[in-house]
Write a protein that binds this DNA or RNA. Structure first.
Length: 276
DNA sequence: CCAAGCACCTGACGGC
DNA sequence: TGCCGTCAGGTGCTTG
């Protein structure tokens, strides 16, 4: 579910509130996607102190004081929430009871998400992280543009490809394409480099703004404190099919591009599949 | 090698 | 009310 800004907001909140907290007890409720058997994983967590919480791509990373790292991938509906201890519910996958009586829960209604534990030094050997592209907010827009434009395929597909650039999902792909005035079906290698650079600048701007507004809440996203984000109120195109473009008033169109529903303004993002 | 399609799951919503 | 189809913020495997 969450894309880069949402995971970033969660990571910042957890790093602030969990750093130095010790896990008193770890409990699992049907950890179907856990890479390691819970019987092996939970003893690695219990008694450990949380050293740091951070993010890479859309993955939430929790460093423990024994050098192990827990990696949470939230996929579509995963949530990591810190709050008062409560009884488990049917969507909980992992519950960590902390030494101040609070509890960290990882729950996931659709069960696409997972938690994995990596021994000291092993995180960077994880296939997922070895294949993932650079962080868009820590990379020069011109370099990002070069990665997007170096091959064919539609722009939307290039933005969603995690090996091209990390952390972009359906919302922020559509929003950055709109801001750059580029059609989602434009052929990436036929768009002028300067326009690709503009796209990457807009991508950075939209990601920064979304982080500043606490992320986007569409259905069930909440940050680590259980609060909804506000950036959904700033969407120009995502989820607005048929509504008027905020710039020119033309009704927004939606179609499947690269397997995902893509909403765009046929006037502001014209470009005859990007041949301009 | 590549893009498309589907699989993985559950729940919400709209139409009939 | 209830059944059915459709859709959902992501990734990864199979297929053509």
């Amino acid at each position: 579910m969450p894309e880069l800004p949402e995971v970033e907001v969660i990571a910042r909140g957890l790093d602030r509130t969990l750093k130095g907290r010790t896990v008193v007890r770890a409990a699992h409720a049907e950890l179907t996607r856990l890479s390691d058997p819970a019987v092996e994983l939970l003893p690695r967590i219990e008694g450990r102190t949380i050293a740091r919480v951070h993010r890479r791509a859309k993955v939430l990373l929790m460093d423990l004081d024994n050098g192990w790292t827990l990696a949470f991938h939230l996929k579509m509906t995963g949530r990591v929430v810190h709050g008062p201890a409560r009884a488990p519910n049917g969507h909980d996958r992992l519950l960590l009871l902390l030494d101040d009586g609070s509890q960290l829960s990882f729950s996931d209604m659709r069960r696409f998400g997972y938690v994995r534990a990596f021994p000291p030094g092993e995180l960077m050997n994880w296939e997922f992280l070895r294949k993932v592209g650079p962080e868009p907010l820590a990379t020069d827009p011109a370099e990002l543009a070069g990665r997007i434009g170096c091959k064919g395929g539609c722009l939307k597909g290039r933005l969603l490809d995690q090996s091209v650039v990390a952390g972009v999902g359906n919302i922020y792909a559509d929003e950055s394409l709109f801001r750059a005035g580029l059609h989602p079906e434009a052929r990436a290698d036929r768009v002028a480099p300067e326009r690709l650079r503009t796209l990457c600048c807009e991508l950075q701007a939209v990601l920064r703004q979304a982080i500043a507004e606490n992320g986007s809440s569409i259905r069930d996203y909440v940050n680590a404190d259980g609060d909804a984000g506000a950036f959904q109120n700033s969407f120009n195109v995502y989820g607005r099919k048929g509504e008027p473009c905020r710039v020119c008033g033309t009704p927004l169109e939606a179609r499947k591009v690269a397997g995902r529903t893509s909403t765009f303004c046929p006037h502001c993002q014209a470009g005859e599949r990007g041949k301009r």
